[in-house]
Structure formats: structure tokens, C-alpha cells
Computed example of a mutant assay.
Amino acid sequence: MPQAPITVALVDDYDVVLLGVAKIIDQYRDRVIIAEIDTNQPLRDTVDVVLYDAFAQPESDREEIGVLIRSPCARKVIVYTWNFHPELVESAQRQGVHGYLSKALPAREFIAAIEAVHAGEIVISDPPGRARPVTGLDWPGRGEGLTERESEILALITQGHSNAEVSSRTFLSPNTVKSYIRAIYRKIDVSSRTQAVLWGVDNGFSPDHRRIDHWRGGP
């Protein structure tokens, strides 16, 4: 008998991020199928794998990962991120995640990693270095030329976090955060933090709050 596709729930605070991931997975729907997409909503369906996209999430708080690990609806939990700071990876493993995957993985390797986790393996990607994200990913501000890291920092600023808090949450040095902020200001043509926040609010950098059930005919 053919094996049923692995059911996956996508979790993040931003629709545009999750929809980009969903489009990648959808190319392999004979192997992996999306059951639901949750933005700031608790899991509803029991799924084989929860894929937690760490874009603009308070990773250093670790709260969301723990909630997913403890959820009876999540058989396996994978973190999907560019941030491979050793403390983050170790913390995620201590909490019991089954995978910590890089956004630099090619799509076929990404799907293979989900399948390996479903089969019972613990999969930790190599740090991504300067590799670009897999084709098809999306994030707020991409159309304006913002990289995913720049967009994540702008999202945290839009949420009201200080430079010190952004540094703590992203595990970037304060000077690196300042460099990113200067680059962000140039790309969105603003000159102050207030202008940047207003631009962020108007351009999709505020977290979403909804669920998409049974995306494209999922279970």
C-alpha cells in the first residue's frame, strides 16, 4: 500500500512567511501535505510534524518551542531558521525538538529532512553560513530589497523592542544590530526609528492572528 503523506502544521506569526514555506512544501504534496497554518493560534489538528518558522520570534525566550513540544497535537517539532547560534541549538535540543533545519537547505533536502524526522531521526542542519535561503521563501519587505535578517530586525523594532532586546533575541552583537538598522533605513528610505516603525506597520511587519485550515485541500 502507498504510504500516506506526512501531515505538517506550519507555525509562525507572519502569514507571508508561512505561505512561502507552504508553496515549497506543496511541490512535494505526494510526500508531505500541509494540514494547517497557524499565526498566533494554538494547534487544532493532530499532525505528524510541526514546522516552527523562527522568523521574528523571541527565540531567546524559548517559550513558543516549549509550548509546541508539550502540545498533544504535535508528534514531532522542527525549528526552521537561519539562526544557528550554539546556545539556541542546544536549548532547542534540551527542550526536545526533533529537528533544527537551515533555511539554506535546497527544497529536496528540506523535504528529506522532514521525512527523516518523521521516521524517528533527530536532524540538525549544518550552520548555513552565507548561503541564500531556498528559492520560494518569502518574508515582509523582500520586495523592497530587505534580506530576511534585516526584515526580522525591522519586525522586532516594529513590535517595540529596543536595540538591546533585538540583540538578545537574535544573538547578534549590538554593533551588528546597529549596522543592520542603518541598512534597513537606507532601503526603506527613512531616517528615524519612528518612521521605520510606521513604515513597518504599513507594510506587513505586525504579527498576524489567524489560522488557515486545510490549506489547498489538506487533511
Rank of each mutant, 00 (worst) to 15 (best):
R186S: 14
R142Q: 07
L154A: 12
V50S: 12
G204Y: 06
A113Q: 09
N203D: 02
V190H: 14
L172Y: 14
Y28E: 03
K23H: 07
R182D: 04
A22D: 02
D138N: 11
G66I: 08
A116P: 12
T170I: 02
G136A: 00
F84D: 02
N175I: 11
Q159N: 06
G66Y: 11
G66M: 13
T176S: 09
S125I: 02
G200T: 03
H209F: 15
Y185G: 08
W139C: 00
V32Y: 00
Y28K: 10
A131L: 15
W139P: 00
A54W: 03
Y180M: 07
A116D: 10
T194N: 11
G145C: 10
D15Q: 13
I33K: 11
A112G: 10
R108Y: 11
K103G: 01
T7W: 05
A54E: 09
Q95L: 14
S192T: 13
I34A: 01
N163Y: 15
L51F: 03
V190K: 13
I34G: 03
A92C: 15
I114A: 03
F171C: 09
F84C: 06
Y28R: 05
D38C: 13
K187S: 09
K103M: 01
S71A: 14
R94N: 05
S60G: 06
R108Q: 09
L101C: 01
I188E: 06
D13G: 13
V166S: 02
P127H: 00
G99D: 07
V50P: 07
E63D: 07
D208F: 05
G200E: 02
P128K: 01
W215P: 06
V21W: 00
S179C: 06
D38R: 12
Q95P: 08
V117Y: 09
Q27S: 04
P106W: 00
D61Y: 15
W82T: 14
S192L: 10
D208S: 09
G218Y: 13
P140F: 13
P127C: 00
Y28P: 06
R149E: 02
H118A: 15
L154V: 11
Y52I: 06
L156I: 04
T46Q: 11
I122E: 04
Y28G: 02
H118E: 15
P42D: 04
V8I: 06
R142E: 01
E148H: 10
I157V: 14
V16S: 02
A9K: 01
W139F: 12
L10C: 08
D61T: 13
R169D: 07
D189Y: 15
I37K: 03
T46L: 09
D213K: 00
D12I: 07
